[in-house]
């Protein structure tokens, strides 16, 4: 089997463990330590931020405007609307700045 195939299958297994793991582990405890919980709560925001920050740093006015608009729209509207607004700004500004 190719390496890609192994990565996909193991990635699927790892994901499945996260989907059943919470129930399996937490159903055995009445409570979890507040610091552990605080760390767990921070996981998605922390991980996803590290994916945006370097790309934003490498970008220019079009990319920065797109992120700013997307973030502002996300404050008031569902995430998908914010995504579309950011994408529209990006495409429009790349078109005009080109």
């Amino acid at each position: 089997m190719s390496v890609n195939l192994w990565i996909i299958l193991l990635g699927g297994l790892a994901t499945y463990l996260t989907r059943i793991g919470g129930h399996i582990v937490l159903s055995r405890f009445d409570s979890i330590h507040p610091r552990v919980q605080a760390g767990l709560e921070a996981v998605p925001a922390a991980v996803l931020t590290t994916l945006v920050a370097p790309a934003a740093m490498n970008g220019g006015p079009a990319e920065w405007s797109a992120l700013l608009v997307a973030a502002l729209v996300c404050l008031r509207a569902p995430m998908f609307i914010g995504f579309v607004a950011g994408a529209a700004v990006l495409i429009a500004m790349r078109h005009w700045l080109a």
Partner: peptide
């Protein structure tokens, strides 16, 4: 993707 991830962060 970066815009999408930022939306998730928000």
């Amino acid at each position: 993707l970066s815009i999408y991830f930022l939306g998730l962060v928000m």
